[in-house]
C-alpha cells in the first residue's frame, strides 16, 4: 500500500551500511483480524511470520502497531495454538523484531542518520508506538537531528487520531470526531507535512487532510530520514 515507505527504509538502512532482505512470502501480521475479534483467522499468521523471518539478524518493521501486535500477542497466540516448537521460536525471534525508529535509536544507538529534509514538519505519536512499544522521544530525537527540518510540536501529540483499524468504519462518526481534533491540531502547527511511525494513522489523517483540500501531506518517518541533500523533494 505504501511502497515509498518500504523504499525509504531500504535506503536508510543501506546508507548506514546494513544488508536488507525482503522475504517474499510475508503478508500480514494479523493485527486486523486479531483486534477485530477474528482470532481464528489471525492464528496461522504467527507461524508464517516465524517461517519468513527466523534467519534474520534483526527484523525491521516500519509500523509501530504491527510490532505491538507481535510483541503483545504472538506469545499468547503461540500458546493458544499449543505448538511447543512455535512457542519457543516466537520467544527467540521477538527480541530481534524492531520498529524502524526503535531499531535506529535503541539497537544502533543513533540519533543522527545523516538525513536532510528542508520542510516544516509536525510529529504525531502513534498510540501503539507510544504506549505499547514505549518509543518515547526516540522518533523526535531522530527528527531533531535531521538537517534543514523545521520541527513543530503538535498540541495533544499523544492523543489518538481515531483510526483504530476497523473502528474507523464500525464507529465512523466517533472516529471522524476524533480525527477532526487531530487534523485541527495538525493545521494549527502550520506544518507542510505530518509524520509518524505508522502508516495506518497517517493514511487516516491524510484521508481527512486531502478531503478538506488542505494541501498538507503525510509522510512516514522513514521517508524523512531517507531524505538526503542530493534529492529533489
Amino acid at each position: 500500500m505504501f511502497p515509498e515507505t518500504g523504499k525509504a527504509v531500504v535506503k536508510v538502512l543501506e546508507r548506514l551500511g546494513h544488508t536488507v532482505d525482503f522475504p517474499a512470502g510475508q503478508t500480514c501480521c494479523g493485527q486486523m483480524h486479531w483486534n477485530t475479534g477474528y482470532q481464528a483467522e489471525a492464528l496461522p499468521l504467527v507461524g508464517r511470520f516465524v517461517e519468513q523471518f527466523r534467519h534474520a539478524e534483526a527484523v525491521v518493521v516500519p509500523s509501530s502497531s504491527c510490532v505491538a501486535m507481535m510483541r503483545d500477542h504472538y506469545p499468547k497466540m503461540a500458546e493458544e495454538i499449543g505448538d511447543r516448537k512455535l512457542i519457543a521460536e516466537v520467544a527467540e525471534l521477538l527480541p530481534h523484531v524492531y520498529e524502524f525508529s526503535e531499531f535506529l535509536t535503541v539497537r544502533l544507538g543513533l540519533k543522527d542518520v545523516g538525513a536532510y529534509y528542508p520542510h516544516r514538519v509536525t510529529y504525531h505519536a502513534s498510540c501503539h508506538g507510544l504506549r505499547n512499544l514505549g518509543l518515547g522521544d526516540g522518533p523526535l530525537e531522530l527528527l531533531r537531528a535531521v538537517k534543514g527540518i523545521d520541527l513543530i510540536q503538535i498540541e495533544n501529540m499523544e492523543q489518538c487520531c481515531g483510526f483504530g483499524g476497523t473502528f474507523a468504519v464500525k464507529n465512523a462518526d466517533v472516529s471522524s470526531a476524533m480525527l477532526a481534533e487531530k487534523t485541527t491540531a495538525v493545521l494549527n502547527t502550520g506544518a507542510e507535512a505530518c509524520t509518524a511511525c505508522d502508516n495506518s494513522c497517517l493514511m487516516h489523517i491524510q484521508g481527512a487532510l486531502h478531503r478538506q483540500r488542505t494541501g498538507v501531506q503525510t509522510v512516514h518517518l522513514a521517508e524523512i530520514l531517507a531524505g538526503s541533500e542530493g534529492d529533489v523533494l
Binding site: V169, K170, N171, A172, S176, L179, M203, G207, A208, R211
Partner: peptide, 10 residues
C-alpha cells in the same frame, strides 16, 4: 462507506 464520510482514500 464510514471511511469516506469525512476521508478520502489514496
Amino acid at each position: 462507506g464510514g471511511w469516506t464520510q469525512v476521508r478520502d482514500l489514496r
